[in-house]
Design a binder for these strands. Sequence first.
DNA 1: TTATTTAATCGTAATATTGCGATATATTGT
DNA 2: ACAATATATCGCAATATTACGATTAAATAA
Lengths: 108, 108
Amino acid sequence: MGITKTETYTDQTLMLASLFKALGHPARLAILQYISKQSSCICGDVVSELPLSQASISRHLQELKTVGLIKGEISGTSVCYCLNNDHIPDVIQFLFQFQTPNNPTCCS
Amino acid sequence: MGITKTETYTDQTLMLASLFKALGHPARLAILQYISKQSSCICGDVVSELPLSQASISRHLQELKTVGLIKGEISGTSVCYCLNNDHIPDVIQFLFQFQTPNNPTCCS
DNA sequence: TTATTTAATCGTAATATTGCGATATATTGT
DNA sequence: ACAATATATCGCAATATTACGATTAAATAA
């Protein structure tokens, strides 16, 4: 990513940016949608759903877990991953500020 | 970014992922917030707001413009950039599907 | 114990992102 | 025409991301 001066942004901005970044890959969006459809899932399920290797899926799942978009716990030989929507309201709330009507006098 | 198999995802997924990706950097979030506060702005304003070079700000502005989060047009010696909220509702709508209550029987 | 199954991690190659200085381009002012 | 101003783009270096095969780790089954 090059050098990002993280110290110059607020914690909220950094938090939101990391959430958006995690959402900024089609595979992770597809994974999230699949998990939310199932209400629970294991890693292998996702591997058979997407044309990615097990290693790649696992990495994407870890990334989603790191930013708190999913939760996961070991369950026998497999792992149960499921949605964590604790942060979703914050993201939606943040986007509301951009939902004001377009200014007609600007960049028409 | 490495190799992303874009052909395996729906257009909607790719579109949303690119929007999220553009939102996934603190500088671009800060720029968007600044622009939305002003209702209009010029590039120079942002340069003095953020600790980034003019070249870097310009690149971030271009990225936001490419995905359609801002609009811009030449206006004299400067450039007027302003918010384009055409895609914001789509993003919010997409996030709604993840806002279901956490499943208490899963990954407690 | 030993084999099987499942997911995480390592190592590596290819590609993308970020940031900056320098330069180019384009408009305004003199 | 020429200087001043403002933004975009180029070229480069540093770093991050993505993906995969191979391996490791951990639990279950035989």
